[in-house]
């Protein structure tokens, strides 16, 4: 019964911390705390979960929803935090404006938004997302497609001609 090794933990932090923070940001205003708490919980596990990334996303999701509930009780504080909300993406050379993309993402329903974040930046498969969200993979895929379509319309992105195949 081996716990999580420091090497594995460091690799998970390097690979998933930013995406997890973005994922937690879908619900709460202090996503770093939630993500850090999730990593600490992972370190306390007696055995390594079968899918550490999926486990982390589940813990972050539960923690972020719980944190959002507590924040909602303090609406005044929530308003101040929302005013100081940091950017979701790095403003670097991209075909999309980071602020516009953030705003468009924020307007999406949370069910579609969390699936887009978990799949695009978290790298989770639709099976993992379905298990995470508590739905079927086909439903998760349908919500993902609907969210992408909605985002594209909001952002007014011209359509490229080449299809993408993800592994």
């Amino acid at each position: 019964m081996a716990g999580v090794s420091p090497e594995l933990l460091g690799r998970l932090v390097d690979d998933h911390a930013a995406a997890l923070v973005l994922y937690a940001r879908q619900w709460c205003a202090a996503p770093e705390d939630v993500v850090q708490e999730a990593f600490l919980k992972l370190a306390q596990q007696l055995s390594v979960p079968d899918n550490p990334a999926g486990w982390l996303y589940r813990v972050v999701r539960n923690g972020a929803i719980s944190a959002a509930r507590s924040t909602r009780r303090r609406r005044r504080h929530e308003g101040l935090a929302a005013a100081r909300a940091p950017a979701w993406f790095i403003a670097e050379a991209s075909a999309l404006d980071a602020e516009a993309a953030t705003a468009a993402l924020q307007e999406l329903p949370v069910e579609q938004r969390e699936i887009i974040v978990a799949h695009l930046w978290g790298g989770l498969s639709f099976e993992q997302i379905a298990e995470l969200v508590g739905t079927s993979p086909s439903t998760a895929h349908r919500w993902y497609t609907a969210g992408l379509t909605s985002l594209r319309e909001r952002l007014g992105v011209p359509c490229p001609s080449k299809p993408t195949i993800r592994n």
Binding site: F89, S94, A95, A101, L148, C159, P160
Partner: peptide, 14 residues
């Protein structure tokens, strides 16, 4: 949609 997905993915999370 695949093209837009690729474009969107080019954004890096903070």
């Amino acid at each position: 949609l695949a093209g837009f997905e690729r474009t969107l993915k080019s954004l890096s999370p903070a």
